[in-house]
């Protein structure tokens, strides 16, 4: 029982005792995963600005990736619908910000909001048609959307033809940091909420067997569509932050490798869990920063091998596997 209790949990417990009694009781009732993620997010919010700029900048990128991981988790993790084309929302969000900033002169925050809205609307349009398809058919239908989007933006003069929309927004890392922090925090809270209680039970049932879920009164189509819209909205908003971060948006924002990275993060971390996407983002992104200088292909190969092994032998990912084999640790993931 004690082996898996990290010391930071105890430290946190002490530091939070300064809260009034009833508030502490509420925090305790959230469960260890929510407490841990809440603590991580709180620490990120507080210590971010005092970190060296190099690390601060990396943290922005990390949070962008984590937001994407939670985003694809909302649909693929929760319902089992493998979305190979999730990057279409990333590129759409990026182009929304790019176009808004360049043509309408809107503030980047507004661009992020616009990216989120457009991502959600696009998810609604794609989802209405494709969420009726199952398994590989859904994967294929979503796979073609970023490919088509790539060609469309490459051939649209208003979107810079093939050369994209470079921007000159200056060095705004503080605003970027807190924007993506707010998105990530909101998304983690949302993920936590939809895995709880009755709604969480309903979503698990849907993932297990869609027909049976319908037969016991779950509004399967609506639940799937709402999750997909939320997922597209967050991916779009984070895609807009990414365009802001790299000061431009290019057709390569629709590169399928982004989709595959997102998917790899939740497969490795644990699909449909609250902690999994965060773990997956850490595991995928940290070696990325180290290996990219030594052997750029080493990291995707390592990710690919991990995805193969996990899919074939440990389908629950890290979180699911620990839950299964270390029952004592289970409550830390609830």
């Amino acid at each position: 029982m004690t082996i898996l209790r990290p010391t930071f949990l105890r430290l946190r417990a002490m530091s939070l005792r300064i809260l009034p009694g009833h508030a502490w009781g509420k925090v305790r009732a959230l469960g260890p995963t929510a407490q841990g993620l809440g603590l991580v997010l709180a620490v990120l919010a507080v210590v971010g600005p005092v970190l060296p700029v190099a690390i601060f900048v990396l943290l922005i990128l990390f949070m962008i990736y984590a937001t994407w991981a939670y985003s694809i988790n909302l649909i693929t993790g929760m319902t089992g619908y493998v979305s190979f084309g999730h990057v279409v929302f990333v590129g759409t969000g990026g182009y929304a910000l790019g176009y808004g900033v360049k043509v309408w002169n809107i503030a980047p925050f507004a661009g992020v909001a616009l990216g989120g809205v457009l991502g959600a609307v696009l998810a609604l349009v794609i989802g209405v048609v494709t969420l009726r398809l199952r398994g590989a058919y859904f994967a294929i239908a979503t796979l073609v959307t970023p490919l088509a989007a790539f060609y469309i933006v490459s051939g649209t003069p208003a979107l810079g033809d093939g050369s994209g929309l470079p921007m000159n927004l200056g060095f705004q890392i503080g605003s970027q940091y807190y924007t993506i922090w707010a998105l990530l925090a909101a998304e983690v809270a949302l993920t936590w909420w939809v895995t709880r209680g009755r709604l969480g039970l309903g979503i698990r049932a849907l993932r297990e067997d869609e027909d049976a879920a319908r037969a016991v009164g779950i509004s399967v189509s609506r639940v799937k569509l709402i999750l997909y819209i939320l997922s597209g909205g967050f991916a779009g908003a984070a895609g807009a932050v990414f365009a802001w971060y790299v000061s431009g948006v290019f057709p390569d924002s629709f590169n399928l490798l982004f989709s595959l990275t997102m998917l790899a993060m939740i497969i490795i971390g644990g699909m449909g869990t609250v902690l999994g996407p965060m773990l997956g983002a850490v595991i995928v992104l940290i070696p990325h920063q180290i290996l990219i200088r030594i052997l750029p292909q080493g990291e995707p190969i390592a990710i690919g091998v991990s995805v193969i092994l996990i899919a074939l032998f440990l389908p629950g990912g890290i979180v699911g596997t620990i839950r299964q084999y270390v029952p004592d640790a289970r409550r830390y993931f609830e």
Partner: peptide
């Protein structure tokens, strides 16, 4: 068509 990964009780609860 039970929900295989849910317990019997959870199946009924859903």
């Amino acid at each position: 068509k039970p929900f295989p990964g849910l317990t019997v009780r959870e199946n009924v609860l859903v």
